[in-house]
Design a binder for these strands. Sequence first.
DNA 1: GATTTGATTGTCT
DNA 2: GACAATCAAATCC
Length: 210
Amino acid sequence: MDYSTYFTNYSTEEISADLLGRPLTYNDGKRTLGGYIVEAEAYLGKKDRAAHSYGGHRSPANEGLYGRGGTIYIYAQRQYFFFDVATQAKDEPQGVLIRAIEPAWGVEQMISNRSGKNGILLTNGPAKMMQAFGIHDKNWDLHFLSDSPFAIDLNDQHQKRPQEIAKSARIGVNQSELEWANKPLRFFVAGNPYVSRMKKNDYRANNGWQ
DNA sequence: GATTTGATTGTCT
DNA sequence: GACAATCAAATCC
């Protein structure tokens, strides 16, 4: 399936859950870095109080959300960057935030990009993942996935399969609007140590993969 | 292990 | 000038 079909023909919640276990890679010009997606959050556009596009808000900074499904939306907050992929048709500003991956390719380079931090600290958070890739700008914002060094492998033969997909409220969203803050729009691989805020007691054998 | 706090910058008003 | 889809170090059990 091509990116455009995958990120347009399914609901944003379905896409967020289905991405778990699929490889996300970034080519830094010399080598391929990346791993398996273990955590993703859905942001449901104009009606979603926690989304940057709530109420139809639109600016140069969040234009990526308004792109067609498969468009990259890179957002800056403080000194950190996040990696999102727009979902749904052009001008329907929904998207998926990739929050964490289980490192698999170019691990040594990613550790180096993270100043030597390794283990789960390498990629168990959205800004940590971007640091591991060595990204410190919005250069690839607004580009389509296939026209960028990023790749999400949609071949079912290449993905890991979660034992269980767990859901929870999204992390870090404004708690003043509880109806949206509490919606279970965060999807993660149950028991995978690279999921942000995963407790040791909840770790599962084989990192939660089948 | 859980909770708190300071760092620090793009973006919008 | 205020705030934010965070992180890491410090502190307190």
